[in-house]
Amino acid sequence: MDLKDRDANANRRIRTAAVLLFAQRGYAATGIRDLARAVGMTNAGVYHHVASKEALLADLMRVAQRGLIDATERMLHGVESPADRLALLISSLTATHALSPMTTRVMDGELRSLTPGSPARDEIIALRDAYEDHWRSAIADGVAAGAFHIADQRLTRLALMSMCTGTSEWYRPDGDSSLEQVCAEFTAIGLAAVRSSVQVVAVPDLSLLPEFPWEPPDVRNDPPIAEAGR
């Protein structure tokens, strides 16, 4: 393995360990020493690959948010019907959180850990808002067309997105329902929530979902690292 490959491997190992530690312990409770111990490096070795712990967090969140946006826009390309767009948004967000639970927990839950007013925090907020704009426009267009009947568009959007992101906490690949079944059921629930009068024909292409190479193996049934190491 040449130097470039070794660096790429080390970067991936660091990011995998960081996602797992940040998701299980929380960013604030994880130090560079914890990260170095998890990947078998010295503190200096970790700093060779990352500028700081906060820079590492920001990079993980930046790449994850951009991946979600890119995948969403590929999935929505050419889809006009608000009901179809909402169905695809529900399916893609549900599946992304189900398949990448640790990455999405960090992406969703650690914005508070970025320094207020910093360029990195402002960038992540802008990316988050750009993604949510797809939900806002699908719901608003459905209401304007008379296809959706909603009292409060913002509350409806937040409720539906929370339903989808919750799969990072409970979905299991070996559970009673397949991912396709979960997506289909959530889509039915979502369209019922907006009182859609339009039949949905769009079928999600789950191959378009974002891939995060650092996502740890599924460890949701394992004890947190803080406990396992005692």
Rank of each mutant, 00 (worst) to 15 (best):
A126N: 09
R128Q: 12
L114M: 14
T94V: 08
D108F: 02
A144C: 01
V106W: 00
H134Q: 06
S100Q: 06
I124W: 07
G142P: 01
L114I: 10
R85E: 05
L86D: 13
D129S: 14
A87M: 11
I125K: 06
R136P: 10
D108I: 14
S118P: 06
L114C: 11
L88S: 07
L114W: 02
L127Y: 04
G117W: 09
A95V: 09
L88I: 10
I124D: 04
A87H: 06
T115K: 02
P119W: 06
I125S: 04
S113P: 03
W135Q: 03
R105C: 10
M102D: 03
R136G: 02
S100E: 04
E110V: 07
D122Y: 08
E123T: 14
L93S: 04
V143K: 12
W135C: 00
E110R: 08
L93M: 12
T96E: 11
L86P: 10
R136S: 01
A144F: 01
S92Q: 14
L93N: 07
E110T: 14
M102Y: 11
A140F: 00
L86T: 07
I124T: 04
S113Y: 08
V143F: 01
E123W: 03
L99N: 06
M107Q: 14
W135Y: 05
D129L: 12
S92T: 12
W135G: 02
G142V: 00
P116A: 14
P101A: 09
L99Y: 07
G142W: 02
P119N: 14
A87F: 04
V143Q: 09
D108L: 11
L99P: 03
A120S: 14
P116W: 05
R128I: 08
L88M: 14
I90N: 13
G117P: 10
I90D: 13
A87E: 05
L99M: 13
T104D: 04
A95S: 11
A120K: 15
P101L: 11
L88R: 12
D129W: 03
A98S: 07
L99V: 04
G109T: 09
A130W: 02
A120L: 14
T104R: 00
T103D: 00
S92C: 10
S91N: 15
G117Y: 09
E110P: 03
L127R: 09
A144D: 01
G117T: 15
R105S: 13
A98F: 11
L86Q: 11
L86R: 13
D122L: 15
I125A: 12
T94E: 10
V143H: 03
L111F: 08
M102Q: 09
R112G: 13
M102S: 12
T104L: 10
V106L: 03
W135N: 00
T104W: 02
P101M: 09
S100V: 06
A138P: 07
R121I: 11
L111D: 05
L86H: 15
